[in-house]
Design a protein around this nucleic acid. Structure first.
Lengths: 111, 111
DNA sequence: AGTCTACATGTAGGCTGTCTATATGTAGAT
DNA sequence: ATCTACATATAGACAGCCTACATGTAGACT
């Protein structure tokens, strides 16, 4: 998966993965991998800064916990984050429609 | 359309628009707008450098023409460009499948 | 003559988000 | 001791899309 392709879609992925339940960074990375059938291996250097950014702009909140002697920062969707996720989903649909319409133009135009 | 979302997909758009016939930069911008139903307004500062980049790596070739007193640089797909376009199309399908599977995970999981 | 719009190409520099590489530390298995 | 898995974090590189600007022709309108 070309890293550049992820640009601008990372937020949607992270918010989506947090929709059902709060998760900490490491678990988010695993969840992304699972849900994508192994196709998404997002490095920690991408995820942790992105989570902090999303918290800073108010889509996520976080709190520390210690489980099995290890420190975790658990992120949770805020109300604004939930609304943003809806926006991200419709933006995604529009995006795929628009790009798809250009990429498939040739297949349609046969004359 | 969020500019960042286009990242890494610009090449596919440009190659796709040139599949049927050679076009010059300005016409490419118009073609993108038409085919996307008006949703894609790609600025010249994006398109012209991108076309040069694609020519540099061998996916496009170009030649100058003068039409109605105006200079045009007409771009055409090379064989490598045509192969690349096929690759871009399958990468696009994989991309939408992967991201879509993550974004739609919640809708599926109802229990 | 001057102004406006459409046509047409191009570059410099900014912005920003993703990545690589590195650092730090716990826990448990060998 | 060493390895792997778990867990978080930052610095700096990289790259591509964008804004803003520069340049020029053609034709319409005033």
């Amino acid at each position: 998966m070309n890293p550049d392709a992820l640009r601008g879609h990372m937020d949607a992925l992270l918010l989506s993965v947090l929709e059902r339940e709060p998760l900490h960074g490491y678990a988010i990375i695993e969840a992304l991998q699972e849900r994508s059938g192994g196709a998404l291996s997002v490095p920690t250097g991408t995820v942790y800064p992105a989570l902090r950014r999303l918290e800073r702009i108010g889509y996520l909140s976080s709190e520390w916990a210690t489980v099995g002697g290890r420190r975790r920062r658990t992120y949770r969707l805020t109300d604004a984050g939930r609304r943003q996720l809806e926006g991200e989903r419709s933006a995604w649909r529009e995006f795929t429609t628009v790009i798809g319409s250009v990429l498939r133009a040739e297949a349609r135009a046969s004359g």
